[in-house]
Nucleic acid binder design. Structure first.
Lengths: 339, 339
DNA sequence: ACGGCATTTCAAAGCGCTTTGGATGCCCTC
DNA sequence: GAGGGCATCCAAAGCGCTTTGAAATGCCGT
């Protein structure tokens, strides 16, 4: 059943039927009702390919997925997908994933924009002066950044959490508990979220006349193994830190293992605060010593990104508004006053 | 730059240019070269929307993503995505994710097929007599199942690992080490992979005259927490098992925690074998007691699925061939002879 | 010199929708 | 009763590609 058949059936022109269905004002309410009724009754659905060709709109949002033999997709990404689903389900909004060589994402960005494959883009885990953000801006396609980039010459719409505030508050709490030697086990520090987190830790320390010593800061891809390695190195040093702040539960897993290997009892010998992105499959309250965390759901952010992207596509949103979400500090058993 | 402009420029008809570019035989080699040269030089790229409208082919593969407020996307999914990227990158093959209400995926399947949004589908984590598989088969769209369904009236193409063999071999090893009371902590047992694994354990036990007692089998969504709960329940029972086989590293995490809470030393008091899907962020060799595992990379399977899907789209593959991949049994420190 | 047969090229008709630029009819005003 | 304004509706022209059916071209044998 296509438009032509439907219009023939209704003895109306395709124009009128199309307009009736798309809510244009220049069609009487009565015909509109006739049309929508008939459309529903016959299960008419406009062919998206035809519509796309005519309008240039794709009705989909895009994500360029960096891949490569030595590139692993972050498990945090599924949380984003869950969130996207929370919004997109019921809105018939699809996401097209375009795998790209991590070393040359630009080609893929250009391709999907030139091809009009998607109406808007989602960009995640930005770097400083992120090229993808600059490119999307330049190409003029609507987009939303999940996270923030710094050092760009223009404003852009984003959703981010208050990483600096979260890590500041966590560190301040540790300092208030008497910790002088606080270490940070961070994620990849070319990404802005890690930069902000480091900034937060530094600020909290300096507010009490303390410093984050270079040897007390580690940054690596957020895996269990890297958490373990970093913690071993920190904790075996001469002036080992008495408290660690880390960027992911995955790393926390490794840190706990390292502490155990070194016969350190938490929180007596080591206090630990981790950031928690809210995974359903690994929860901070279920660590052998329940973890104090800075908590912010990626899933919730994903839903919001989808919502704003949809708003941008339909023209309900424009401009470069950035949202910064506050982060909860959830205190559990993994921290205590310094001995 | 579109076809019309290009053909004008070359003083050829659109027909000829189109044919030259698409490798039809009825165009002389010389003109073909002229055309492809000019196309490259001017960066001509056929508009996919137009092509899609004309041919009905989308050039994309699809995945209907079950979502819902209480539905969490499995972190295993990112491994699949990495694998997909391994193949799709460089082939300009995109994946469209269509979020669907987990309780009504059929509507979404029908929509994306009716709309010709994708040329082929990927179906994962099938159930017995899986409705999605039946539906895809009935709708006549090419698809590949990652995993297997049972009790369907027809054959279909799939890629699966030898779950039964893997768990059989793991269990047999434990039995050979003297274990009589072996327990299984499985994933959701409405999914076929879990059914096969249980079958493998049972078969190995019965080969030695042993049985898998009902109280020694647990099946839940594969999370740390569920692993912990299941292990607690098993290990606190009267005739506690001396060995456990489990379906995921995530659950193994919880099992190890439970053992520790109960002051059981591994492998002295408890042997553990886990299935390992090969995550880069959590590795069995980096557990405090390195885990013996049945190992099979989801990522590799993802790449293969993408490859076969592409082959089906271009007509290079058809029929209902199923691939069953062998699984490695990797022995590490978490198992030992029974005391 | 001419018909027959490949080979190569083309004009035009879709694919199914949106949208431009009128028509048409009706009511109201002066 | 002419003219303007408004509400409805329509024919037809795209959007950029593929593909059908036919035409032009060149070559061969007779």
């Amino acid at each position: 059943m296509n438009l032509k058949q439907l219009s023939l059936m209704l003895e109306l022109s395709q124009t009128t039927v199309s307009r009736a269905l798309n809510g244009y004002p220049e069609v009487s309410e009565e015909t509109r009702r006739r049309v929508t009724d008939a459309a529903k009754r016959h299960g008419y659905r406009p062919n998206p390919s035809a519509r796309r060709l005519a309008t240039g709109k794709a009705g989909m949002i895009g994500y360029v997925m960096p891949t490569g033999a030595s590139v692993d997709i972050d498990p945090h990404f599924v949380e984003f997908l869950s969130g996207l689903g929370d919004y997109a389900r019921g809105h018939e909004l699809d996401l097209v994933l375009s795998p790209a060589d991590a070393l040359d994402e630009e080609t893929t960005y250009r391709r999907i924009v030139a091809n009009k494959q998607v109406d808007a883009l989602y960009i995640s885990a930005p770097y400083s002066a992120d090229k993808r953000v600059a490119l999307a801006h330049q190409l003029g396609i609507p987009f939303i950044v999940h996270g923030r980039s710094e050092g760009l010459e223009f404003d852009y719409p984003f959703i981010d959490i208050d990483n600096e505030g979260a890590f500041h508050d966590a560190t301040r709490l540790l300092v208030q508990l008497g910790h002088k030697r606080v270490a940070l086990i961070n994620g990849d520090d070319t990404q802005t979220f890690a930069i902000f987190r480091e900034r937060g830790v530094r600020r909290a320390l300096s507010e009490s006349g303390l410093v984050l010593e270079p040897k007390n800061i580690r940054s690596e891809v957020m895996t269990e193994e890297n958490g373990y390695r970093a913690a071993r190195r920190l904790l075996e040093a001469a002036d080992a830190p008495t408290a660690i702040v880390c960027s992911s539960l995955l790393m926390a897993l490794g840190i706990v293992r390292a502490a155990r290997d070194l016969n350190l009892v938490m929180p007596r010998d080591l206090s630990l605060v981790s950031h928690d992105d809210v995974f359903h499959w690994l929860k901070p309250e279920h660590f052998s010593v329940p973890l104090t965390t800075t908590r912010s759901s990626i899933r919730a952010a994903g839903a919001r990104v989808a919502e704003r992207l949809a708003a941008r596509i339909s023209g309900l949103e424009d401009g470069a508004r950035g949202e910064i979400w506050p982060v909860d500090l959830v205190v559990r058993g993994s921290i205590s006053g310094v001995r």
